[in-house]
Design a protein around this nucleic acid. Structure first.
Length: 478
RNA sequence: GCCCGCGUAGCUCAAUUUGGCAGAGCAGGGGACUCUUAAUCCCAAGGUUCACGGUUCGAGUCCGUGCGCGGGCACCA
């Protein structure tokens, strides 16, 4: 019978005080917590009256402030000690002087650990060396930290820990925090742009009884009350187009979408999509809208239109190059193709070479069952993808509005599925019914928000722009 | 699912090439220090080298299997 290698956290806290499997740095903290409680100190305060953030306090020389945050560095000098306090707005130096605080409070300050959450009450001043600081009168402990922080100078490097324990990444790596703040600002800017143009933001179902709107393997779940399998949505498209039929002429949704596929630096099983539909618009209008969205997003992220991604110069200045898929393949391979052959040749031989923003136009009808055919050549549809740095960032069509054609396209997809293409588009009878009531001419656009954020924040992997990316189960608890 | 690489102290990294006592910095412990800011100085401590098995007198190092992470491929018509 083997004894457990490590105990799970949360059980028998007193037993853990002497748990020989725990690192000494953690045992020491627990012991200190016990001593504090014995001395009558409550190590987890109910609240603290914070009057200013560290950023606000910096501008208030000579004034009394109450700031609060995490202790992230300390430099003891005996009778005078320094520490850095970090809050959501930044950092400020704390200065503890024995002759001002008194012996007991000064000793208590020196007894604090890096990682502790404290309040800091005192007067803002500038040290002889020019550092804006708080001259402490009081430093109440607000929350005792029982685990050591990552290395103060190098930060947290281990990528697995950064993803699994994102809070440590956010505490120790300010540049990581900045990426997520930019992500939020990008999404806000996109919303603002669309709202200003009269688009209505909506929420459509995530649980679908048909996984339609794209080519992808869905996640399956089970609805007990209906005793029926459901799917997590793989796209937003068909519900939003039902709203177009319903007279919501400008509509969009920003939402999580799920695809049951491999994980890679560019794919996470759940990701954020923007889909926009505009009645009486075409895919040319969607190209201009896409350009406007990219420009607004870059501005929100604080990224210049002429920038670089992973060392490669990228110019986001519109208008972007517009070329048909057929011409691009012809130009780069010398072959004039159509249908699936064209798409295959494009993906393997052309797309990786498209580095600057490029609208690739007019896809084969076979792989585009929801898009309108070109009037001059019905083998192709009015569709574009926006390729930047070799990757797809947007996908848009002049939407198919002919219910008879739509039914035939779905039937072709059903035949493909019967022939073994598991990801072929399923037949959505209810959607065809909606279209039969009459759908106005419409342009539609989908943008992969995560990938746009990757581009604008120069992050190499989609995991770096997702707070909690999908990982396998951790091998053990530490 | 397949191929390649990686896994050493709480954190950041050495030692792996060529098998020979597992080391440093930070953090933590003890001490000195009233203008430091990667503070400095002195002392002591800290390890199931991812796990299990094998080869060997001897394995962090070589071999096998498993787990996790990273990259590539497949999937993403």
């Amino acid at each position: 019978m083997e004894r457990p290698l490590r105990r799970q956290p949360g059980q028998d806290p007193h037993g853990q005080l002497s748990d020989p499997d725990l690192p000494a740095v953690i045992r020491d903290r627990r012991e200190k917590l016990r001593r504090l409680r014995e001395a009558g100190v409550e190590p987890y305060a109910r609240s603290f009256e914070r009057t200013h953030t560290t950023a606000q306090a910096r501008a208030l020389l000579g004034e009394r402030v109450q700031v609060a945050g995490r202790l992230v560095a300390r430099r003891g000098m005996g009778g005078m000690a320094f520490a850095d306090l970090q809050d959501g707005a930044g950092r400020i130096q704390l200065v503890a002087r024995r002759d001002r605080l008194g012996e007991a409070a000064h000793a208590a300050f020196l007894d604090l650990d890096l990682g502790d959450i404290v309040g800091a009450e005192g007067t803002v001043f500038t040290t002889k060396k020019g550092e804006v600081s708080v001259d402490l009168d009081r430093v109440p402990l607000l929350s005792k930290s029982l685990r050591p922080l990552p290395e103060k100078w190098h930060g947290l490097k281990d990528v697995e820990t950064r993803y699994r324990q994102r809070y440590l990444d956010l505490i120790s790596n300010p540049e990581s925090r900045a990426v997520f703040e930019k992500r939020t600002r990008v999404i806000g800017a996109v919303r603002r742009l669309l709202d200003e143009r009269g688009f209505l933001e909506v929420e459509t179902p995530i649980l679908h009884d048909i996984a339609s709107g794209g080519h992808a393997r869905p996640f399956t779940t089970h609805y007990n009350a209906l005793d029926r399998d459901f799917f997590l949505r793989i796209a937003l498209e068909l519900h939003l187009k039902r709203l177009i039929v319903g007279g919501v002429e400008r509509v969009y949704e920003i939402g999580r979408t799920f695809r049951n596929e491999g994980i890679s630096p560019r794919h996470n099983p759940e990701f954020t999509m923007l889909e926009v539909y505009q009645a009486y618009a075409t895919y040319e209008d969607m190209m201009r809208l896409t350009e406007d969205i990219i420009v607004a997003a870059a501005e929100a992220a604080g990224t210049s239109l002429t920038t670089s991604y992973q060392g490669e110069d990228i110019d986001f200045t519109p208008p972007y190059r517009r070329e048909t898929m057929r011409d691009l393949v012809l130009e780069l391979t010398g072959r004039d193709l159509a249908g699936n052959e064209l798409d295959d040749a494009f993906e393997t031989e052309v797309q990786p070479q498209l580095r600057q923003p490029t609208f690739v136009l007019d896809y084969p009808v076979e792989i585009s069952p929801l898009a309108r055919r070109r009037a001059d050549d019905p083998r192709f549809v009015e569709r574009f993808e926006l390729i930047i740095a070799g990757r797809e960032h947007a996908n848009a069509f002049t939407e198919l509005t002919d219910p008879i054609d739509q039914r035939e396209r779905f039937e072709q997809q059903a035949a493909a599925r019967a022939a073994g293409f598991e990801e072929a588009h399923p037949f959505d009878e209810d959607f065809v019914t909606a279209m039969e009531y009459g759908m106005p001419p419409t342009g539609g656009l989908g943008i992969g928000i995560d990938r746009v954020v990757m581009l604008l924040t120069d992050q190499p992997a989609i995991r770096d722009v997702l707070l909690f990316p999908q990982l396998k189960e951790a091998p053990r608890q530490g």
